Simulated scan of single mutants.
Amino acid sequence: MLGAGIFVALGPAASAAGSALLAGLILAAAVAYCNATSSARLAVLYPQSGGTYVYGRERLGPVWGYTAGWSFVVGKTASCAAMALTVGFYAWPEYAHVVAVAAVAALTAVNTVGVQKSAWLTRIIVAVVLAVLAAVVTVIVGSGGADVSQLAMHDVSVLGVLQAAGLMFFAFAGYARIATLGEEVRDPVTTIPRAIRIALGLTLVVYAAVATSVLAELGSAAMASATAPLAEAVAAAGHPGLTPIVKVGATVAALGSLLALILGVSRTVLAMARDRHLPAVLAVVHPRFATPYRAELAVGAIVAVLAAVLDLRGAIGFSSFAVLVYYAIANASALTLGAKAIPIAGLVGCLVLAFTLPVTSVAVGVAVVVLGAAAYAVRR
């Protein structure tokens, strides 16, 4: 979650909601909390690779499990491409697509040799990103130029806030990948729920601090038009020399997101291949590293192709829609466990945010989900 989302989602969210951006952030966090709670409860019962693919299958039936798995795989594959492109545009804009493909190849290789190596690399990346974000907030607050009056919400549009929440949700999504590693962690009954809640809480605190400071420095109009709002906020605060450091932070953050994304998608592909919803050849686990290396390589190859041809913002919108569908099924699955309030809130929240995203994202998302359902029906 502490990845490229905070570097790329603030601008589009400000464009949708203006000064009500922070309301969208809070709404996205509330929906994410419901999703995290439902996912944690389900992960305790089903500590297996696959996440909501497994939960939907076991609690609602095979077709819902398949729909969740399909939505996760296609949505997060698009998100992988978006993160890879973020690496390219920040690191070397003139050759963004080439850099994106190279990043996918490198991190796929890291993931195939085992989760422990990936976990250590992730710790380093998160430390760097936190340091950069802390520097951004400190510089803006210390400059004395931030105007808190720009945090006031004027002419609030409900649709704009909902769209901003859907776009900011892209930055929160990530906790489900903890659940997808159910077969590879020690004491999953205790570890998975605790990890999900701690990760979500820390991420919310960081994002709220960054979004508030950048909005106070730039204002909603400048923030909406900014291609790199954090870098522009630092420059506006009187420290343009820190702009390259922010760009390095964004690149490192995107690499961290991409690392975790490939890891999670490949585990869902593994679970679906075991059930023959995807080619069985992808269900093979490496005898030495105990990783689904064929699924890793297949996902890496597809993401590399997408990163070579896709548009960044289009990939973000489609990914948000598909992932919200995935979490809607997670909440529906949690409804069967007894407690109702949080799963109902999460289910309604996911559907509302999904269908208030930009029209193109909704249309493409619906088409892809229907295509997956048709493939399932034909196979059956």
Score class of each variant (00 low, 15 high):
residue 228 A to Q: 13
residue 228 A to N: 07
residue 228 A to C: 06
residue 228 A to I: 14
residue 230 L to V: 09
residue 231 A to M: 09
residue 232 E to H: 06
residue 232 E to T: 10
residue 234 V to F: 00
residue 238 G to W: 04
residue 238 G to N: 08
residue 241 G to K: 09
residue 242 L to I: 12
residue 242 L to F: 11
residue 244 P to I: 15
residue 245 I to L: 12
residue 245 I to M: 08
residue 245 I to D: 08
residue 247 K to A: 12
residue 247 K to H: 15
residue 248 V to M: 07
residue 249 G to A: 06
residue 250 A to N: 06
residue 251 T to A: 01
residue 254 A to M: 07
residue 256 G to E: 13
residue 258 L to C: 05
residue 260 A to E: 10
residue 260 A to C: 09
residue 262 I to K: 05
residue 262 I to W: 08
residue 263 L to W: 12
residue 263 L to S: 14
residue 263 L to I: 13
residue 263 L to T: 15
residue 264 G to Q: 06
residue 265 V to P: 00
residue 266 S to M: 07
residue 267 R to P: 01
residue 269 V to N: 01
residue 269 V to H: 02
residue 270 L to R: 01
residue 270 L to K: 01
residue 271 A to D: 03
residue 271 A to Y: 01
residue 271 A to P: 01
residue 272 M to D: 03
residue 272 M to C: 02
residue 272 M to T: 14
residue 275 D to V: 10
residue 276 R to Y: 15
residue 276 R to H: 14
residue 278 L to Q: 05
residue 278 L to S: 03
residue 281 V to S: 12
residue 281 V to F: 12
residue 282 L to R: 01
residue 282 L to Q: 03
residue 282 L to F: 03
residue 284 V to N: 12
residue 285 V to M: 04
residue 286 H to M: 07
residue 287 P to Q: 07
residue 290 A to R: 15
residue 291 T to R: 03
residue 291 T to P: 00
residue 292 P to M: 10
residue 293 Y to L: 14
residue 293 Y to W: 14
residue 294 R to E: 14
residue 294 R to A: 11
residue 294 R to T: 11
residue 296 E to A: 13
residue 296 E to S: 12
residue 297 L to R: 10
residue 297 L to S: 09
residue 298 A to S: 06
residue 298 A to C: 06
residue 300 G to F: 03
residue 300 G to H: 04
residue 300 G to R: 04
residue 301 A to S: 08
residue 302 I to A: 07
residue 302 I to F: 08
residue 303 V to E: 04
residue 309 V to E: 06
residue 309 V to T: 09
residue 310 L to K: 12
residue 310 L to R: 11
residue 311 D to K: 05
residue 311 D to P: 02
residue 312 L to N: 08
residue 313 R to D: 14
residue 314 G to R: 06
residue 314 G to W: 08
residue 315 A to H: 02
residue 315 A to T: 12
residue 316 I to Y: 00
residue 317 G to H: 15
residue 317 G to S: 13
residue 319 S to Q: 09
residue 321 F to G: 02
residue 321 F to E: 08
residue 322 A to D: 11
residue 323 V to W: 07
residue 324 L to T: 10
residue 325 V to Y: 02
residue 325 V to W: 03
residue 326 Y to N: 10
residue 328 A to I: 11
residue 329 I to Q: 01
residue 329 I to S: 00
residue 331 N to G: 04
